[in-house]
Amino acid sequence: MTEQQTVEQLSRYKQLQARIQVLSTYSVGAGITVSRLNQDDQLQELHRRLRNLPSYMYLGKREQKLEATAHAYLTQYPAGVKSQLAVIPQQGADAEDDKLLQELRDKIGKVIAARGYDVRDDLDAVLDRMVELQELQDEVARIDTVLEAIKGYKPDYERLLRIHYVDGKAWGEASQEMQVSKDVFYRWRRKAIVEYEKIAK
């Protein structure tokens, strides 16, 4: 990570949080928001309960066939309804696999419907917002993790990064708040960025 990337990432922190706030309130119908849909993921809860059991103990023959098809085509098994739908290919190797893959997509849709959600017609837009929400939450969490790590051994550097870049305060206001001289502020700023780059890479 370069100095410019570090500065850009930290400077975007509040913008990321604002976008998360907007995405969280996006309605999918029936009073349900994207954030609730993302948090209330019954597929993941079911997976947690069943993952230690062999699939033949809880799946019928048709479901076992669907599971085999999923394993054949999927290279990852992400969390979140949007992410799950996104990794299911639109086409299989033949017409039979096409039908099975479509059935997998339909089953995920039915799980959503079974929760009592009146899902909007523009499902793709809802799913796109879910993926964006998850990615932004991950990015904010990474920034917080790096800053907290720095705070553990260089609290002045972490404070400088938050005041100057995250809060967007100019060097004069930031140095006054930190009660340090201009020279000290600029020395610390460079060192703080280096520390961030080391931790974040």
Rank of each mutant, 00 (worst) to 15 (best):
K110C: 02
K154V: 12
K154Q: 09
D121F: 05
E195P: 04
M130D: 05
L104M: 14
K82W: 10
D128I: 08
D98V: 14
D106N: 12
I199R: 11
Y77P: 06
A114R: 10
K107H: 09
R189Q: 14
L53T: 14
D144T: 14
K198N: 11
A141H: 10
S83R: 12
E45W: 04
A141W: 04
I143A: 07
L85I: 13
E139Y: 07
A79K: 12
R62H: 10
D144E: 14
Q64A: 04
Q5W: 04
D138R: 11
Q179S: 14
V7H: 01
I32W: 14
L50P: 04
D94V: 14
V111Y: 04
E158M: 08
Q17C: 06
E135A: 12
S55R: 12
V126Q: 02
I143Q: 13
Y26E: 05
Y77T: 15
R120W: 02
E197K: 14
K61C: 00
L59M: 13
K14V: 11
A72E: 09
D128L: 02
A200T: 13
L50H: 09
R189F: 01
A192H: 05
L37Y: 01
T145I: 04
G60C: 04
V184R: 11
P89N: 08
V111L: 03
V140E: 01
G168N: 03
K169M: 13
T6V: 15
P54K: 13
Y157W: 13
I108K: 06
L50K: 13
G172W: 03
G109L: 12
L104K: 05
K65H: 07
L101D: 08
Q44M: 10
R51D: 03
K182P: 01
L133A: 07
D121A: 11
Y165V: 01
S175V: 06
K110N: 07
E103C: 08
Y117I: 15
R19Q: 12
D167F: 08
D122A: 06
V131Y: 00
L10P: 02
K110T: 14
E96L: 13
L10S: 01
R159L: 14
D106Q: 13
Y196L: 00
E45S: 07
R36T: 07
D94R: 09
V180T: 13
Q176T: 15
A95C: 02
I163A: 01
I88W: 06
A114Y: 07
K198D: 08
K65T: 13
R162S: 03
V140Q: 06
E45D: 07
G109H: 11
D97P: 07
Q91V: 15
L161K: 03
L101H: 11
K151L: 09
Q179C: 06
S11L: 05
L161G: 03
R51Q: 12
T69P: 03
L100Q: 15
I20L: 10
G152I: 10
V146P: 05
Y117T: 12
V119A: 06
R162K: 09
A72P: 00
G31H: 06
R120C: 05
E3K: 13
G116Q: 03
H164T: 12
V111E: 10
E148L: 10
A200W: 10
